[in-house]
Simulated scan of single mutants.
Amino acid sequence: MNIVIAGAGLIGQGWAIVFARGGCAVRLWDGDEAALARATTLISRQVNELENRGLLNDAQAVMARIQAVPDLALALQDADYVQENLPEVLELKQTFFSTLDTLAGPQTVLASSTSSIPASAFSEHLAGRSRCLVAHPVNPPYLVPVVELCGAPWTDPAIIEKARDIMQAIGQKPVTVNKELRGFVLNRLQGALLREAFRLVQGGYVSVEDLDVTVKDGLGLRWAFMGPFETIDLNAPEGVADYCNRYGGMFQDIAQEQTSIDAWDPALVHTVDQQRRALLPAADLLERRLWRDERLMALLLHKRQAEISQDAATS
Results as ranks from 00 to 15, higher is better:
F229C: 07
P228W: 10
G220N: 02
T214M: 09
F229A: 08
D217T: 11
V240D: 00
A236Q: 02
Y243T: 06
E238P: 01
R222M: 02
D233F: 12
D242R: 05
D242L: 06
G227C: 07
G227Q: 09
T231D: 03
K216G: 01
T231R: 07
L221V: 14
T231F: 10
N245F: 13
A224P: 00
D242A: 06
L221P: 00
G218F: 02
A236G: 03
R222Q: 05
Y243N: 05
G220F: 03
T214P: 00
R222F: 05
F229M: 13
N235W: 09
M226H: 06
E238Y: 11
C244M: 15
G218D: 00
D242G: 02
C244R: 14
A241S: 13
G239V: 01
I232K: 08
M226P: 00
A224T: 03
N245L: 15
Y243F: 14
N245D: 15
L219M: 10
G227E: 07
L219G: 05
G248T: 07
K216H: 09
W223N: 06
C244I: 15
G248P: 06
G248S: 09
P237E: 10
A241W: 09
G220W: 04
K216M: 09
M226N: 01
N235L: 15
G218L: 01
E238R: 12
A224S: 09
Y243E: 03
G239N: 00
A224R: 08
N235C: 14
G218T: 03
L219V: 04
E238D: 12
D233A: 14
G239L: 02
R222T: 01
Y243A: 05
Y247Q: 14
N235A: 15
V240R: 11
A241L: 14
M226V: 06
A241M: 10
D217P: 01
A241D: 08
G248A: 12
D233E: 13
G248D: 06
Y243L: 07
C244T: 13
G248F: 11
T214R: 05
N235F: 10
Y247V: 15
G218Y: 03
D217G: 01
D217C: 11
L234P: 00
Y247L: 15
E230N: 07
Y243M: 07
D242Q: 04
I232G: 03
K216C: 10
L234N: 04
P237C: 09
M226K: 07
P237L: 12
E230Q: 11
I232W: 06
N235V: 08
T214L: 11
R222H: 04
C244Q: 14
L219E: 02
L234Y: 08
G239E: 00
D242M: 01
